[in-house]
């Protein structure tokens, strides 16, 4: 089952379906331990945190065996900046992956659908493996798929809010329509929410704050890994149908065939 159940993004195969953000940890050592405890094979790191100094997040992650880096464009407020950030990230990290994150409002960090679409069109043509962070908008998700994105990353709720899967109904709709992986990104707080997303058919889950801001980030990373795996297993096993519809004592269909 393991081999057939790999996560495939733009032709790249991953055994783990948990993706970690790396920016909010108390120190780099804890972040690396959390990445290991989560069994991550894909992590995202902001270009703006690439540095030649002691706070650099890129090099320590690049040294981890079996880990693919996905630079992100956090901080970009328009498509031009995002494209430049993506190019700089690829140049330094050597990774073709990019998480397109364009949030003109630096406070709530909600993604700009128009600028995101424009940047993704450009980056997909430039052979990036493009994963856009988006609001849970089923139409935008399809437009991005058509534009050549390798996956879409709808938000569960606002970044860092810990409000969980507020957009669940829209995410279900995106999943039902999508031919590319759907990865819930942002807003999760508890592993149970990650499990719920996976049970609903998400291909993967990305968390940062939920792990980094936990009392014990390393243990929380492991907990998310188990929840994601359990959710995926449940999805594959096929959940029983919901509902408690009783069968009427006088069948409503009894008249048929009379």
């Amino acid at each position: 089952m393991a081999e057939s159940d790999e996560l495939i993004i733009g032709g790249h195969r991953f055994g783990s379906r948990l993706i970690l953000g790396t920016g909010k940890f108390a120190d780099t050592a804890v972040m690396l331990d959390a990445v290991k405890a989560a069994g991550c094979e894909l992590v995202t790191v902001a270009l703006r945190r690439f540095s030649e100094g002691v706070d650099d997040l890129c090099a320590p992650l690049a040294e981890c065996a079996g880990l693919t880096l996905m630079p992100n464009t956090s901080g970009a407020r328009n498509a031009r900046e995002a494209v430049r950030a993506a190019q700089a990230g690829r140049e330094i990290s050597g990774s073709p992956f990019v998480k397109v994150e364009i949030h003109p409002n630096p406070h709530h960090l909600m993604p700009d659908p128009i600028e995101t679409y424009q940047a993704c069109c450009e980056l997909a043509k430039d052979d990036f493996v493009v994963l856009p962070y988006i609001a849970a908008d089923p139409v935008l998700a399809k437009r991005l798929e058509d534009a050549g994105c390798a996956a879409v990353m709808p938000l569960g709720s606002a970044i860092g809010s810990g409000q969980g899967l507020q957009t669940f109904a829209m995410i279900e709709l995106i999943i039902s329509e999508s031919s590319i992986p759907v990865i819930v990104d942002a807003g999760l707080r508890a592993p149970s929410e990650a499990a719920a997303a996976m049970e609903a058919g998400c291909s993967a889950v990305l968390v940062n704050s939920a792990v980094a801001a936990a009392e014990n980030p390393v243990v929380m990373a492991a907990a998310f890994a188990q929840a994601v795996a359990a959710g995926r297993m449940a999805y594959n096993a096929g959940l029983m149908s919901r509902g408690t519809d009783a069968v009427a004592t006088s069948p409503l269909t009894a008249f048929l065939g009379r």
């Binding site: 940890f25 108390a26 120190d27 780099t28 270009l47 703006r48 945190r49 690439f50 540095s51 100094g53 002691v54 706070d55 650099d56 464009t73 901080g75 970009a76 407020r77 328009n78 031009r80 900046e81 430049r84 950030a85 190019q87 700089a88």
Partner: peptide, 21 residues
């Protein structure tokens, strides 16, 4: 900061993100 469980961030921006618009 480290003793308080906080990471000092020296670089949190990038020249690629400077757009004059």
């Amino acid at each position: 900061l480290h003793a308080r469980g906080l990471q000092p961030v020296f670089k949190n921006w990038d020249a690629a993100l400077r757009d004059g618009a």
